[in-house]
Amino acid sequence: MPRPGLPVIALVAAALVYPLVFGSPAAINVGVLILLFAALGTAWNLLGGYAGQISFGHAVFFGIGAYTSTVLLKEAGLSPWLGMLAGAALAALAAVLLGVPTFRLAGHYFAIATIVIGEIAHTVVRNLDAIGGARGLFLPILPTSLVNYQFHNSRLPYYGIAFGLYALALAATLMVERRRIGYYLRAIREDPTASRSVGVSVLQYKLAAAALSAALTAICGTFYAQYVLFIDSDSVFPLSLSILIALTAILGGAGRAYGPLLGAGVLVPLSEITRIAFGGTGRGADLVIYGALIVLISVAQPGGIAALGDALRRRLPQPA
């Protein structure tokens, strides 16, 4: 197994150079979104890529993170950093409670269940007036400071935090990959029955992957709330967000540590371009493109962008 040295060094260097080269607030914003979706895709990848449990409902955990820290900030004045931890814990708990019944379902049936759960959560939050209902929640504007998790003069601090989120998700993935749980999750993806036969507690490991994945996703939800300073059910709970999270990982390379970063590097600019090209009428256009990409990946290269290198190596003559 190759050591992560080189990719990690390249990653840190690229992340440092990017804001120096592209200094405009719009470009920094794209950088923030790439890192945020790389983090989300990496979190999704633990459950969807390694354990093979395809979720189209991860917006639920994102929404739990965003709403938990925001409600605690507004109602109790609690620091968003503590709210972030509360959101992560709540999301992990939700993942376990939802996982116990849904992990009995195999393959497509599990994926369908996650869509249904996501839509239920979306509808419930839209109708829950106690937490803003359809009007959403504005975050209180506080002075710029790291403690307040708000920065009004520059987007660079957000860029730095987004990089931290991605680094956290990547570190979690690399730790999982090298340990027993990483082998067991891949075994479960490959063949749950055979996994049981060699002593793998399939449900227990799926729940562990789901809890970790949900907690990391919720942390990203808190970041989004602090970045945009307004949340509503349509921005943090929609199906399109769940699909984008999954697609980031699938396009880049499901079950590969660096895959989601590659996926985010393609998808986020693409989504920004369609937004600029189609303006307010372009809301459906990105979904059309996501759908087309899913078809293209499943037909042409199920391993995603990260697998292209492997495929290329196989085609070249092998050194003797």
């Binding site: 063949d191 029955t193 049981r196 036969s197 060699v198 002593g199 793998v200 507690s201 399939v202």
Partner: peptide
């Protein structure tokens, strides 16, 4: 459960081969 029995030391293979 099958996984518990594997821990107990009772392990099986399958008629139709099941590798990863």
């Amino acid at each position: 459960s099958a996984s518990r029995l594997a821990r107990d030391g009772l392990v099986r293979t399958f008629q139709i081969v099941r590798v990863f």
